[in-house]
Design a protein around this nucleic acid. Structure first.
Lengths: 196, 196
DNA sequence: AAAGACAGAACGAACGTTCGATATTTTGAC
DNA sequence: GTCAAAATATCGAACGTTCGTTCTGTCTTT
């Protein structure tokens, strides 16, 4: 087997297990058994259990480039915002365990947050706030809006939908059709709130 | 020492430690050392480590009665909504580790969710949706609103503020003054979005 | 033949629980 | 109220299990 095959396989399996039960909730024996390899392979390829966990985290927070592309597109502000909302939904669909990793269990979590999560979130907030500012400058949006707070309000509406679904484990049905209804609904509420 | 003194002390200490590093990230030796008692006390009083963890969870999700009082108050719909937002903020201020427990690590997490978290969230959503419905019936709010989705949008704006703060560990400054600004801001956006 | 990938056994450390002994509190008869 | 006895609370050691890592040897690839 190619070296990278096993690495990718371990990251894939570890992502699901770590997300379900956390770093300390999964043993390397279970991980290696699920991957069909020896337990020594985790130390060999990742330098230890935390090394594998770090690889999982890196992979989970490595898809923030798309948000920059949204911003570069030559569309109006509200279209960019809708594109951002759709991106969040796709993100949670592809990485349903993402929220768990916001409360990381690394020996040095500060490092993980300051190196990976914080820059990513700051970048998103900055880009979206800039979109709001442009809308204000063009007199499309209300002049008295605080761009950052407005971004947090908007991001909250979308993220919370998935957070509450995770927390209640089936309280709200997930489906593409329902996603579409929610996008329309959120855009509707949000648009009425910020348009001048 | 009184029996309940030690029980309460252990729950208090365990809440902070479990929230910081999760069920499997804290040993009963560390817990009992922090409480200044023997390790056997945890099994004696709580029937084991998971018993203590369950007690922590129960205590963290046992403050949902206030939301019913808000609903009973003889005030108009928007005032009730603002009271709800303030309640969330106080809740997170008093229980800053609350979000961690949404991804529980119990051996049988389904039981925890179905018994504690889900009923609590469903109750809140139901009460708030009822408030929205009343506003619609009185022609205060837009007729085309879906009450439940509207509640999720509103709850998301507030909850996400704290979620993002937790995730970024200092990205956004917390203070009563800033809370007040946010309450005004969120109420403003939300009000404009739902008023008829 | 050299280098890399992998397996499996072995290691010490840490884990949660249990158990017998001891200290403290509560109970009840006088 | 006193005091012995019962019940409860606490301790600390010991137990068996599981943990992550390491090491030696073997197989595969270059």
């Amino acid at each position: 087997m190619d070296k990278n095959d096993l690495r990718n396989k371990l990251v894939l399996i570890a992502t699901r297990l770590f997300a379900e039960r956390g770093l300390n909730g999964v043993s390397i024996r279970e991980l290696s058994k699920a991957a069909g390899v020896s337990i020594s392979m985790i130390s060999y390829h990742f330098g230890g259990k935390e090394g594998l966990y770090s690889s999982v985290l890196q992979e989970q927070f490595s898809d923030f480039d798309y948000i920059e592309e949204i911003n570069k597109a030559d569309t109006e502000e509200l279209a960019k915002i809708e594109a951002y909302i759709r991106w969040i939904i796709v993100r949670y669909r592809n990485k349903p365990y993402l929220l768990r990793f916001y409360t990381s269990e690394l020996t040095n979590p500060t490092q993980f947050f300051s190196l990976i999560v914080q820059p990513a979130i700051e970048k998103i907030i900055q880009i979206l706030a800039q979109i709001i500012e442009e809308g204000i400058a063009k007199n499309k949006f209300r002049k008295d809006l605080n761009p950052v707070d407005t971004v947090l309000a908007m991001a909250g509406m979308v993220n919370y939908y998935f957070l509450s679904t995770l927390a209640t484990q089936e309280l709200i049905n997930h489906s593409p059709e329902r996603d579409e209804v929610l996008i329309r609904h959120y855009m509707d509420i949000f648009t009425k709130g910020i348009l001048s």
